[in-house]
């Protein structure tokens, strides 16, 4: 064991972080909450949507099936924030840095081990949501006969939306981890993360100027990132799906960078 640690410090840091995350009683609950909340909200949105006979329904059935991601990301953010701010609130962080003085490595290890459960939860949550869409939507007027193909992963656009939604959740976790590292306090961090995510869609909806509205949707981490879910009307999106996810990735990278720099410069 000690031989392993001296030879591969990176691996032992990773191992330590994984042990911490795994043994904190909140983690399984938060993973479960991510899945349950995402799927439940998706089902509610799907169940509440009907396409009456004769009416045109310009609906994106894939995006509709993934509505729960809007909520599930909040739990993911909590999980990621607690990964580091929990250590600050208990004072554990001093022990961590005493054991592993390379702080950047600690942050990198935290990023890796937080992303794992988020990806796992994301896969299950997205699969559950899409399954609900596949089962419920045809009975609500969104049938193949009316031009709404069954939500299916065989469709490359749908596959991109599904995989992209899982990646979206992982990037939200990294963004949250970066912000939490920078501000240290869990309540402030979670308020900042959710404020940052939800500010753009609301202000964009109500901006009087359509030009600004488009720009806001292009730079907002949630508005741009969630364009990955779009499978119809791709030409009228404010930003293309992968570019939108790239905007979120840039936000996450910036947050981690700022968090990492502050982590090195500050006292723990």
């Amino acid at each position: 064991m000690s031989a392993l640690e001296t030879r591969r410090p990176g691996l032992s840091t990773l191992r330590a972080e994984w042990t911490k995350l795994r043994t904190v009683p909140g983690t399984p609950w938060l993973v479960a909450a991510t899945i349950v909340l995402t799927v439940a909200v998706s089902i509610a949105a799907i169940a509440g949507t009907r396409c009456p006979v004769g009416a045109p329904c310009p609906a994106d059935t894939t995006k509709l099936s993934l509505t729960g991601v809007d909520f599930g990301q909040a739990v993911v953010a909590v999980m990621a924030v607690l990964g580091i701010s929990g250590e600050y609130s208990t004072g554990m962080i001093r022990a961590t840095f005493a054991a592993m003085p390379r702080r950047a490595a600690v942050l990198a290890a935290k990023a890796c081990v937080t992303t794992g459960p988020v990806l796992a939860a994301g896969v299950i949550a997205v699969a559950g949501s899409m399954l609900a869409g596949r089962l419920i939507l045809p009975g609500h007027g969104f049938s193949a006969a009316r031009g709404f193909p069954l939500v299916s992963l065989a469709d490359p656009a749908v596959l991109r939306a599904a995989a992209g939604s899982v990646l979206y959740l992982a990037l939200i976790a990294l963004l949250s981890l970066g912000i939490a590292t920078a501000v240290r306090d869990s309540a402030v961090a979670i308020g900042l993360v959710l404020g940052l995510l939800y500010l753009f869609p609301i202000v964009a909806t109500l901006a009087a100027n359509p030009h600004w509205q488009r720009h806001l949707e292009q730079i907002g981490p949630m508005t741009a990132g969630l364009e990955i879910e779009a499978t119809t009307g791709l030409h009228s999106l404010p930003i293309s799906p992968w570019a939108g996810l790239g905007v979120l990735a840039a936000w996450a990278a910036a947050a981690l960078l700022i968090g990492g720099v502050l982590l090195r410069l500050r006292d723990a």
């Binding site: 909340l37 809007d70 739990v75 909590v78 924030v81 309540a187 979670i190 939800y198 609301i202």
Partner: peptide
Amino acid sequence: SAAAVAAGIVVIVVPFILGIAQVL
């Protein structure tokens, strides 16, 4: 704190967005 803040925001702000931001 984190759980309480997230719960507070999720039950008030997110439904508000879903209600008005043309996602549903």
